[in-house]
């Protein structure tokens, strides 16, 4: 009996664990991330206005929403959110919901620079995700450029190989 037999992953999902994820799952995860970032933006906007209200309650009015500023803020927040999510845990909230994990091609966790570049590419060129539908290895443009892969991984606490040169070998069997 292997350790995987005792995992909390349902039997029907076990064969998919560790394989690269397809377009639909990744689109849903990206949509969840987009909603998350928008919700964060709204919270930040309300927080900033709340502080302004407490500072000047009489002359308070909601700050104007510049479209360009909002888009830039959304992209900046998206990049920060994606970078730290992929660097720290290998998954964003959308990835967590959909049971995905972003790793290097060696199976190791992303380095900070790789996570940042991938986040920037995902923010400014989201259409690149569609390439994973036609890619034999299910790799998006971001995956090809940065050298990453998106795997099905339903485990709550994924085990990464050690960072560094030793992590360049093949990943542990999943």
């Amino acid at each position: 009996m292997t350790a995987g037999d005792l995992s909390a992953i349902p039997r029907e999902a076990r064969p998919y664990q560790g394989t690269t994820a397809g377009l639909l799952t990744r689109l849903i995860a990206s949509a969840i991330d987009a909603v998350t970032v928008v919700a964060l933006l709204v919270v930040i906007y309300l927080g900033v206005n709340g502080v302004r209200f407490m500072a000047h309650p009489v002359a308070f009015s909601f700050s104007d929403l510049s479209v360009i500023l909002s888009v830039i803020a959304a992209l900046a927040l998206l990049v920060v959110y994606l970078t730290f999510s992929w660097f720290v845990t290998g998954r964003t909230y959308g990835d967590h919901v959909m049971g995905l994990r972003v790793v290097r091609r060696s199976g190791a966790r992303l380095r900070f620079l790789a996570a940042f570049v991938r986040a920037v590419l995902s923010a400014v060129f989201p259409v690149g995700l569609l390439w994973c539908a036609v890619s034999p290895a299910r790799r998006s443009v971001q995956d090809v450029v940065v050298g990453t892969a998106v795997l099905y991984d339903w485990r709550a606490r994924p085990e990464f190989p050690e960072r560094g040169p030793a992590a360049e070998g093949p990943p542990a069997e999943r």
């Binding site: 909390a8 992953i9 039997r11 029907e12 999902a13 799952t25 919901v97 959909m98 339903w154």
Partner: peptide, 29 residues
């Protein structure tokens, strides 16, 4: 299949929905 029994007995409706969503999305992939 104790994990399955634990899941069935303790998991909330939300986690079951997530599980279904994940499996359906894998099928869609």
């Amino acid at each position: 299949d104790l994990p399955e029994m634990v899941r069935e007995s303790t998991s909330a409706m939300a986690s079951e929905s997530v599980r279904g969503l994940r499996m359906h999305s894998i099928s869609g992939d």
